[in-house]
């Protein structure tokens, strides 16, 4: 008697095997290597390296700016996706294509462009700096750059969901007496929330790992505008592998738990789906 279950779609064994292999080679082995290398440190050494004042300042900037940027994208990306899906206007396709721009542009180019825009003598900077808004070489600049690179994630996650929204559901709410705002809050928003969270998580994860655009716009001043990935590079250049690994492990654990937490939240908000 055969123990394998019959399946109409053949090839589960081979595709699953390949998936495992691929995932291991690309993701798991490097991660495991990182964690193993960190075991070469004693716990107190690790703790000292990971919680040095400079490191903590860099965590605060990295996670704080990433959170701020992801939140901005969640709000304005949702708005942008809504406008692109719900309304017909001249230039809609062009704007739609522009959303992908941050995906395509090398991040170093983005960083250079943004820092020259917001510098005191830049196009925007010459007006903003006198008002006290300094976009270049400040934490604000980091947020701006991270918002730029994270924008497509929310928009692209949300667009198909918006397209599939049933207009009749909104009409049904109207026949029951609900106005536009009430319909949006009570009926539309809950169905969008899981996708907004997915987009938020993607933008957040992307922001934590962002390097290329930040190094240009932040100025990399220790304790002020230095992000953790930059600090890791600094440590490597100093041949301080232990220091780099300690920072990397913190970054990794933090990212994992954040993404995990967002996934749980997403599960909960989509409890009404299949």
């Amino acid at each position: 008697m055969s123990r394998t279950k019959f399946n109409v779609l053949p090839g589960f064994g081979i595709t699953f095997g390949f998936t495992l292999f691929y995932l291991s080679a690309i993701v798991l082995i490097p991660f495991a290597g990182l964690v193993l290398r960190s075991f070469e440190l004693t716990w107190s050494d690790f703790w000292a390296l990971a919680t040095s004042e400079r490191a903590v300042a860099s965590y605060r900037l990295t996670f704080g700016a990433s959170l701020a940027a992801a939140l901005m994208n969640a709000v304005f990306g949702t708005l942008l996706a809504w406008v692109l899906v719900r309304y017909q206007f001249p230039g809609r396709r062009f704007i739609d294509a522009m959303v992908d721009f941050p995906f395509a542009l090398p991040t170093a180019v983005a960083g250079l462009t943004l820092s020259s825009l917001f510098a005191g003598n830049g196009w925007l900077g010459q007006f903003l700096v006198p008002l006290g808004i300094e976009g270049a070489f400040t934490p604000l600049g980091v947020v701006i750059a991270l918002t730029f690179v994270g924008l497509p994630f929310v928009v692209r996650t949300l667009q198909p969901v918006l397209q599939n929204l049933d207009r009749e559901v909104e009409e049904a709410a109207a026949t029951l007496g609900a106005g536009r705002w009430r319909t949006f809050v009570a009926v539309v928003a809950p169905t969008l929330l899981p996708s907004v969270l997915t987009g938020f998580a993607l933008a957040f994860a992307r922001a934590i790992g962002e390097y290329g655009s930040i190094v240009f716009i932040s100025g990399n001043v220790p304790f002020k505008t230095e992000i953790t990935p930059y600090l890791i590079v600094m440590r490597l250049e100093e041949y301080d592998y232990a220091g780099a690994i300690a920072l990397a492990v913190v970054l990794m654990v933090f990212s994992f738990s954040l993404i995990g937490a967002i996934n749980v939240l997403e599960q909960w908000t989509s409890r009404f789906e299949r």
Binding site: E171, A172, T175, A186, V187, T191
Partner: peptide
């Protein structure tokens, strides 16, 4: 003050 029933019911799926 009308009640309307849509062909595909248009229920609020999050409720």
């Amino acid at each position: 003050n009308i009640g309307f029933v849509f062909q595909n019911y248009a229920l609020f799926k999050s409720m």
